[in-house]
Design a binder for these strands. Structure first.
Lengths: 157, 157
DNA sequence: TTTACTGCAAATATTTTGCAATATC
DNA sequence: GATATTGCAAAATATTTGCAGTAAA
């Protein structure tokens, strides 16, 4: 069994434990949604999640999607991000080497930035009167592609 | 003139410069909105901003509020945050010693955390192919009040 | 068999847009 | 005087909710 499949098994198990502990039912919809996150792309907004499930002939209503996302957030198998736009993004959280997000304020594209050193610095910070579970670092700025375009435009003037 | 008033004058000037450069009009509504941020509380959602302006007998439509917030975001006089809930928060950005946010996932309360050391570490990080303007660090976890409540509940069981 | 969960549709919440009136330049 | 901006109302978008039918335990 390769690493990807192993992770899928582990998160499935973790989800099962969580659902049992909360006395929630183990429905195929819930497992299908979890599985998408650990099979496919990493980032989804609700619409693309809905579409991907449909493409696989697994029809899930939006109500169930939102319901399940809440469960997955609660048991820390999925993270939710909002990068300024009024659209939520979700990504897998287990075994997804915690990374930072670089958001270009010109083209709105999002890059991931893995920086183990900085991550450890943040994770090891002691905070008074607060027990951290996880963190999100969003760095806003201009990506190199947009920077180049802007330079060109300025030269024309 | 005290420090607060000085800052208010400076941001007003900066806003004027920005509006001139963008050939936008200098309307009283725009200045009134900017001023609220640098006079009053630091954090606003759209509703409370609307209410505060009304209380001061300065009626501004929501359309204008949203329009003006975009301008203030563009010229970096205001920052926008979204802490998981579907509600945007705005806060002053100039002379507002950059701070981090601690978000309690139990009670949803938000605390500010000033940590100059960590701030410098993040700000001084070199990032390949990307020119940062600002960043947001959101630390999620459980605040001490909720932690205490949870402990009590567990003891009962 | 019980009742939590699902899908649907309607409701709510937030933000955006079109347009006529107004105020800035 | 020209037109960018405003307020209003309607539209668009994202999320939540009520409820009847379905399926997990």
């Amino acid at each position: 069994m390769d690493k990807e499949n192993k992770v899928r098994e582990i998160v499935k198990q973790k989800f099962t434990e969580y659902l049992s502990a909360k006395k929630c039912r183990k429905t195929p919809e819930r497992y299908a949604i979890l599985d998408i996150f650990y099979t496919d792309q990493r980032h989804f907004d609700m619409d693309s999640l809905y579409e991907v499930l449909n493409e696989r002939n697994f029809r899930v209503s939006r109500a169930t999607l939102y319901n399940t996302m809440q469960l997955l957030l609660d048991c820390n198998l999925v993270l939710k991000h909002q990068f300024g736009k009024n659209l939520s993004f979700y990504e897998r959280a287990y075994n997804n080497d915690l990374h930072h997000h670089l958001i270009c304020t010109v083209c709105n594209k999002i890059q991931e930035s893995k920086d183990a050193e900085l991550r450890l610095l943040i994770q090891n910070k002691k905070i008074k009167q607060f027990t951290p579970t996880h963190y999100c670092l969003y760095i806003y700025g201009v990506c190199n592609i947009c920077a180049r375009k802007l330079k060109k435009e300025n030269r024309k003037k």
